[in-house]
Each structure stands twice: as structure tokens, then as C-alpha cells.
Design a protein around this nucleic acid. Sequence first.
DNA 1: ACATACGGGACTCCCCGTTAAT
DNA 2: ATTAACGGGGAGTCCCGTATGT
Lengths: 199, 199, 199, 199
Amino acid sequence: MSADPPGLRERKKARTRASIQQHALRLFRRQGFAATTVEQVAAAAEVSPSTVFRYFPTKEDLAVLDEHLSLATVIPPAFAAQPPELTALQALRATLRVAFDALLPADRAARMERDMAILQVPQLWAANARLVVEGMDTLGELVARRAGRDPGDPAVRTFTGAVLGVSVRVLLDAAADPETDPLEALDEALALLEAGLPL
Amino acid sequence: MSADPPGLRERKKARTRASIQQHALRLFRRQGFAATTVEQVAAAAEVSPSTVFRYFPTKEDLAVLDEHLSLATVIPPAFAAQPPELTALQALRATLRVAFDALLPADRAARMERDMAILQVPQLWAANARLVVEGMDTLGELVARRAGRDPGDPAVRTFTGAVLGVSVRVLLDAAADPETDPLEALDEALALLEAGLPL
Amino acid sequence: MSADPPGLRERKKARTRASIQQHALRLFRRQGFAATTVEQVAAAAEVSPSTVFRYFPTKEDLAVLDEHLSLATVIPPAFAAQPPELTALQALRATLRVAFDALLPADRAARMERDMAILQVPQLWAANARLVVEGMDTLGELVARRAGRDPGDPAVRTFTGAVLGVSVRVLLDAAADPETDPLEALDEALALLEAGLPL
Amino acid sequence: MSADPPGLRERKKARTRASIQQHALRLFRRQGFAATTVEQVAAAAEVSPSTVFRYFPTKEDLAVLDEHLSLATVIPPAFAAQPPELTALQALRATLRVAFDALLPADRAARMERDMAILQVPQLWAANARLVVEGMDTLGELVARRAGRDPGDPAVRTFTGAVLGVSVRVLLDAAADPETDPLEALDEALALLEAGLPL
DNA sequence: ACATACGGGACTCCCCGTTAAT
DNA sequence: ATTAACGGGGAGTCCCGTATGT
């Protein structure tokens, strides 16, 4: 746990890795996943194809957001800290506000950019399926603990499914219309969920 | 172009096609998409690889549920026929009951089997992304018309996103636990949505 | 054994194969074996690298002269047909004259060209080691039978070793000096062997 | 630059170098050249791969017998010292006896072991091609000077070619049959050469 | 002196489009 | 008209050899 001086070399590796992934996602979004070759990604990142494979075992892994964890470390405590009189959806909305405010604006933009790239290319969903499921499970556990329910309770599982579905829908819509603030739109959508989708 | 007697030859082609797809989905679920070769699918279906490609232009197309349309032709009129005093979610629940009851039990099982195969292999989601989006859009239009809203209205889009997310979640859970009746679980989940996800 | 019309396709394959090999040997001789990439060979032969590997499993196999057999089918009967009063070396010299006269001049030049390419690149010797050993063994058996000796007899093995060593030496020298007639030089060298290498 | 006390450090380096090469040749003979990785050689010699490359610039160099020179320094004077009434082959046979007797038995066995390893793996011939050619040229010059001929004289070149071919053949045979004394077999073979390969 | 990152080439496997032969 | 052979090309693995730390 002595991460103090990450070592000059480690930093270079991290930068190389991030660079490769950025170029990859940019190309994937522009040309599509299948139409992009690893060679192109390598050329764009100014490394050799070997190096790409050294950092990402398969082409699909170029689209896996392993550092997504940063959010995963912020959300649980923030959610648990919400006052108990809030409903689960209210607590979640408050948590999201806190979590995103905690991110530096630069990070926030970069993350959004990256997530959008993946959301818009169906081929890349599969690569992150595990992460999404884990995220849902984590959320499910938080909600279950808060409500004194079992994580397998249909109400809990419906909750997480609905939240995920709504999030995807809203973020995709926001990506299509650059004037929308994704965060705000998501908050509004969760409010609608709370109201029982009145239509 | 008369659809009445589909012709002996047409039927055989349809059967071959269905057989290939069934074997493909079975293998995909068992071994994964990437780990399954077209040659294996051909061998399992007892045809030549060339034939597989004659029925399905690409390997991915083996996972595309084009006939899913059958449901698409049943749902819209059934939904439109629901009494106006029902909420959108109530109408949807009623519609689903009607639509599935209209299917022959054999068809119902086969379809469920097939859909599950795809749902459980993330790699195959992408292949059906277009279908899902179209399905959501269709549902959105139906709901919008019923409620006198615009299809782009946030409430409508949140509705379809939530319904899809909940459906996926419930069906995956049902697949893991064979004792669950997927239809009943879905109905229950939609009821929870209607109640505003009380937790 | 119905090789009459070898089929249009077979011929094309044979031509492709020969073309690839010719280009490969040319490049090997010009740039060396290691310095030549399969990609270059493919480009020179105007096919894709995949195709090169389809015809030749490994890069080394590009240098294996499998059709060398043609000579192998001519020499044994010709050698056996030599009058018994000749010594083994005399019989061999006569056989070589007959065998090479039987080749079309064009074939002869092409073969010589090809063999020289290999002889001049040490890296390629290994690829043909098996062929050479088999050739020596065949010659040894012919000589042994003719002389009523065992193929394992030291005299027989010394004979084949000397003939091979002398052949390589002479052909390499002939390659360096284009004015020399390789056949004639070889004949002269074998005569010297017969004379006990008088020096 | 005094060769007297080679220095403790020098000796250790020499031992490391020899150890690496021995392990390499052993592995090459057992598994083949291509199938043996530098990593395996390093592991066998209990050093790191980096160290292997510090002693031997390329993998092929592991098979180059640079110290073979020791023989090269012994043979020329011994050959020149043979009485002039001997034929070249007689002089050579006498020289070989002297040269090998001059080697310590331990060295002799080690050298034989090493040479055999190379002789039995065609892939390694190429690595030593230069040495062999140089050896032949040296022998050719010695013979030419002795006989008052030109080194390019066909008789001289045939001589060296035959001697090399016979040597290779005999040593390979001897390697296959451990009961044979390679030296004796070689002497016998050279005698047969002198007799004009009577068969 | 060892470890590590990197470039790059050989090689295999497979998808899939084209072409030809039955 | 179906099937099979052929071909292109990209993914991915392995390893050599170099260059850079440490």
C-alpha cells in the first residue's frame, strides 16, 4: 500500500495505457468496432500492435473501463450516509449529485466522453457487461441493506433494473442532444420513476 | 406472393433455417460466441458451412431474431385496444397477458428458450440492438399516443427505458431460477414500477 | 494414376506454388534468409501472406525442394543399368551424364538456378537436410547392391560422403564462376576421387 | 593483456559462458533448435535471459564454436611438419593423430560432445558455416603449398570437399553408434579415399 | 547484473466473400 | 444450384533481440 511515489515507470505505463484506450474508443465510435483494426489503434496511439496487446489482451478489452472503480468507491459510502427518512430513490438521487460533484470537472468530462463512446457502440456493451452487473449488484445490496430487505427480493431487483434501464435511455438521449445536461436529465428521470411513471 | 400455402419448398427452407439457428444459439450459450466456429454450427445442424452462410450472411446474424416481429404485430393493436382509463403501465400489463396467451404453448416455450440464449450471452446483445431499439420506439409511440404526449417527452422515454431495464432484469433472474414463471415475475415487477418502486 | 487432365484448378495451384517459391528463393539469395520477411515474399508473388502460409506451412518450407524427386526417379534405374565392369564411381559418372541429358534444357537451367540459391544460403541447408540424407541413403543402397556390400559398410558410407562433399564444393565453386560448366566440373572432380585424390 | 594469470573474474566469466553454451547445445539436441527458447536455456544454466544475451548476441551464436580455433592453431604447423614424401592424405591422417593426441582427454571428450550436438541438428550447421568454410580454405592452402599447386586448383578443391564430406559422414555415423571410435573411423575412411573409393 | 518494456516478425486460426466445378 | 475449394485479411500468441532503467 506504499503508493506514494508511483515510480517514474509506472506513470509512463499508465499514460501509455490511457492513450491507447482513448484512441481506440475514438476510432470505435467513428468507424465502428468491427471496422477498426488493432493496427489502426496502434498507429493512432503511436505504438506497435504488440504493445496494444501487451496492455489489452483482446481487442474487446480496449473497451473495458476498469478504472470505473473510482465511482464505485465513492457511491457506496455516500449512499449509506443519506438520512434514513429518504426513500431509496431519493437517496440515490442525492448520492449521484454528491458523487459527481466530487469529481474534478476535467475528469468528469473525460469520463462522460468515454462512457458515451461505449454506450453508443452496441458491440462494446458486452465488454462491460460484467462491470454493469457488478454495479447493479452493489447498488442492490446498498438498497437492500437500507430497506431491510434481501438482495434477492423482487422489489430490490426491479429497482436496480429500472434504474439501469432509465440511466441508459437518458444518457443515450443526452448523447444525441448535446444541449442536455446528462446529470440533470437523469435526476429528472429518477424523479419520474419515483412518481410511478405517471402516463 | 400468397402466404396461404407457403409451398413445400418454402417450408423446408424455413425448417433448415430454424434448425441452423437453434443449433447456433445452443452452441453460443454453451461455449460462448467467439469460441464457437461456423464450422461447428454447420456440423451440428448437419449442413455445410457454405449453407450456413447462404441462410445467414454473417456469423452474427445467427443471433438475430428477425421473426421476433410476430410479437411486434400482436402487441400494438392489443395495446391500443386497452380501455383508456387504465394507466400506461396497467395497459401494458394487460397487453402482455393477452399477447402471450395468444401464442401456442409450444411456440411460447421455443421463443423463451431462444430469447434466453441471447439474453445470457452478452456478445449477442449487440446483434439485436437494432431490434430492441425499434421495439422501444414502437412502445414509446404507443404510449405517447395513448397519453397525448410527444414520443420525445422525457416521461415517455423514461417509461420505455424503465420497462426495458426491468424486463431484462426479471427475465435474467427467471432464467437462473427455473421455478419462476417469467411472465408472472414480469407482471409483478411492472406493478412495482407503478407503485413508484417503494423501498 | 489418372493424371491426364490434371484439372484446370490443379494447374493454377501448381503455378501459384511455384511462383511463390521462386520469388522466395530469389529474395533469400539477394537479402539473406533471416532478412527476408514472409510479407515481402507475398508481395513479390502478388498474393497475401495468408496464401503463402497456405502453401508453405513455415518460412523454411519455402526452401524445400520437394519436386527434387524427379531426379530421384531417374537416377536409380540409370545407375542400375550401367555395365557391371565399371567401378562405382565410373557408373555414377555415366549415370549423371544420362540423367542430366534427359532433362529439358529449360528444366535444367531452372533447377540449377534453384539449387544454387539454396546452396549459397547456409540457412537453407537445414531445410533440405532430410532430402540430402535420403539422397545419400538411396545412393548408398544402389552402390551397395552393385558391389555386393552392405549399405552400412564403411566403404559405402565413405563413398557417399565423399561424393556429396565433392558435389557441394564443386557446385559452389561453379556458382561463383559462371564460366564453369557445373556438370563438367563435377565429372572431373569425381574422376579425381577415383584417382585417389593425387596430391 | 597478459594471458598468464587469466584473472579470477575472467575465469568465472569463461565458466559461465561455457555453462550456458553446454546447456544450450544439450537442449538443442534434445528438443531441436527452434523449439528451444532462450528462456529455457537461461533457466537451465541458472542465469537470467538478459545474461544469456550478454554472452551471446543472438540465439544462433549459442551454437557457434568460436574456440574451435584451438584446433586451428594446432593443425597447420603439424601438417606442414609432415615429411614431404607423404601424399596429402597420408599427411593429413598423420596430422589428425598428432593433433588429437595433443588434446587432453577431458577436452577431447567435451569437444566431441559439443561438435556432435551441432552435427546432429541441421539448424545449427548454418551458424558454423563460416567456420567450416574457413577451415576448408585453410586446409586447401596447406595442401596447395605442400603440393606446389594453386589453392584454386580443382584437385585441391576436390580434395577439401571430399575430406569434409567424408568427415561429416563418418562422425554422424559414429554418433549413432557409440561403440565406434570416431578418430579411428575417420582414419579408415581417409584411407579409403586414398585408395580411390574402390567399389 | 538483472528486470522490464518494446518493436516486430512468424505463425495459427477463423471469418467470410469469390470462384469454380459438379 | 448446391457444395466445395480458394483466397484475403484480421486477431491473437510466442519469442527474439534491443534499449532502458534500477
